[in-house]
Simulated assay, not measured.
Amino acid sequence: MKIKPQHVVSLTYDLYVDQEGSEVLQESATEEQPLTFLFGAGQMLPKFEENLSELSTGDTYEFRLSAEDAYGEYDEEAVANLPIEMFNGAEVPEIGSVLPLQDNNGNRFQGQVVSVAEDSVIVDLNHPMAGQELHFKGNILNVRPATPEELSHGHAHGADGHHGH
Rank of each mutant, 00 (worst) to 15 (best):
G42F: 06
S66E: 12
V24G: 00
E73F: 08
E94P: 05
M44G: 00
V92A: 12
G21R: 01
L65E: 01
E23Q: 05
G21K: 12
G58K: 12
Y71V: 03
F87T: 08
A80P: 00
A29L: 01
L38T: 07
E27G: 01
E62G: 15
D59C: 11
D75C: 11
S53P: 00
L25P: 00
T60Q: 14
E49C: 09
S22V: 06
L38H: 04
M44K: 08
E20H: 09
E54S: 15
G89W: 13
A29E: 00
V24P: 01
A78I: 04
L38A: 04
P46H: 13
G58D: 11
L82K: 03
Q26H: 05
E31W: 05
N81V: 15
I84L: 12
A67C: 11
G42Q: 09
E50V: 12
M44T: 02
A67R: 10
F87P: 05
E62F: 08
T36D: 03
L82S: 03
G72H: 09
P46D: 09
E23N: 09
F63P: 09
E91S: 13
G42H: 06
E68G: 04
G42I: 03
P34V: 01
Q19Y: 10
E54Y: 08
P34T: 03
Q26M: 06
Q26K: 02
G89Q: 15
N81S: 15
K47F: 09
I84R: 14
L82Y: 10
Y61L: 10
F48S: 07
A41F: 02
T57C: 07
